[in-house]
């Protein structure tokens, strides 16, 4: 299983803050996972589509499209940060 987290505007646009997801067949990277979520359509497609300013963390470390994703990982999607 994967633990997926969504923060800030993404959480609101998707209407969900967290979910558990069985690792989809063929998904091995952040980019693959994002494409899988976009394929859900609706808000998922518009919110997570390519070209959107989006950050991803895998196991609480900033990640890139090629970062590996595997069973047990915590993957978070969020907008560019605005603290301080």
């Amino acid at each position: 299983m994967l633990k997926l987290l969504y923060f800030a505007m993404l959480r609101e646009d998707l209407g969900i803050g967290a979910e558990e997801l069985a690792l989809p067949a063929g998904v091995t990277t952040v980019a693959g996972l994002r494409a899988h979520l976009v394929a859900r359509g609706g808000a998922w497609a518009s919110t997570l589509a390519g070209g959107k300013a989006l950050r991803v963390a895998v196991n609480q470390e900033m990640a890139g499209p090629a970062t590996a994703v595997g069973p047990g990982d915590e993957v978070a999607f969020f907008p560019p940060v605005t603290g301080g």
Partner: peptide, 9 residues
Amino acid sequence: LKTRAPFWK
């Protein structure tokens, strides 16, 4: 902190 710490306003 402003570019790397996960806070949102």
